[in-house]
Simulated scan of single mutants.
Amino acid sequence: MKQSAIKASKSSAGKGCLGTLVGRAHLAALASVFLVLSPSAGVAETPEDYLRNPYSRDDNQVIARGGEMFGRNCQQCHNSHGKGGKAPQIIRGAWGPDGANSDAFMFDTINAGRKGTQMGAWGLSLPPEDIWAIITYIRAEAVKAKLEDDQDEQ
């Protein structure tokens, strides 16, 4: 990779990322190489497992850590608890408990960003375990929002 591309990805603090440069398929391939080289290094056993949330959705320690990471990295755009601000809300609809967006889709979105939007790639700034913790936190907040919505309807 040219030095200018490396400088560009490093200078955009969360906007440049390995996932953006190589894409999801390549990320899974890299994960499989990592697993072959060090099979006991992580929770993933296959490339597909790399895109599966390793944390339980009710692990309060992970939720708290994810909330802290969310506050530091995501809240400025998605507002407190993911309720939306200058960026979309991420706890209802497709992002909600019964929504269409899977954990793998959420991981890919945070890791690689979204083209054509202000959602930058965080894959070089945040390790996968922090991204998964953030997703676990978002899922917990989505469950709370659904309970609030259900109570409001009654």
Rank of each mutant, 00 (worst) to 15 (best):
E68I: 13
M106I: 07
D103Q: 03
D108K: 00
V143M: 11
G93C: 11
R72W: 11
M69S: 14
C77M: 05
I91T: 14
A104Y: 05
Q75S: 07
G113R: 00
E141M: 12
P88R: 06
N101K: 13
D108N: 10
D59V: 10
L124G: 15
D103S: 02
V62L: 12
S102N: 06
G66I: 12
V143D: 15
A112L: 05
G85K: 06
Y55S: 03
N73F: 14
F105Y: 15
G71R: 13
K86L: 01
G96D: 13
I131S: 02
D59L: 15
E129L: 08
N79E: 13
G120N: 05
F107N: 09
R114N: 07
M119Q: 08
G113A: 03
S56T: 07
H81K: 04
G116K: 01
G93N: 08
A145M: 10
D130I: 04
P97D: 01
D98S: 12
V143C: 02
G84R: 03
A64G: 13
G67H: 13
E68S: 15
L51Q: 06
M106D: 00
G85N: 06
Q76P: 05
G82H: 04
N53G: 09
Q118T: 14
T117Q: 05
R92Q: 14
P97L: 00
G93R: 01
D130Q: 02
D58H: 12
K86N: 10
Y55V: 02
H81Q: 12
G85C: 01
A140T: 04
M69K: 14
Y55E: 00
P54H: 14
R92D: 15
L51V: 12
F107H: 10
D98M: 11
I63W: 04
I91P: 00
L51I: 15
V62D: 07
A133V: 01
I131A: 00
A94H: 06
N73T: 11
C77I: 07
I135F: 08
N101L: 15
T136V: 07
I110C: 07
C74F: 06
K144W: 07
K83H: 01
K83V: 03
Q75Y: 11
Q118G: 13
G84N: 03
A104E: 05
Q89W: 05
K86P: 00
D58R: 13
V62A: 14
K83L: 11
N60E: 15
E129A: 11
I134W: 01
A121V: 03
T136M: 05
L51T: 13
G82T: 05
E129I: 03
V143P: 03
A121N: 03
A112V: 01
H78E: 03
V62N: 10
G123F: 02
K83I: 04
D59E: 07
E48C: 00
G82M: 08
Q118A: 14
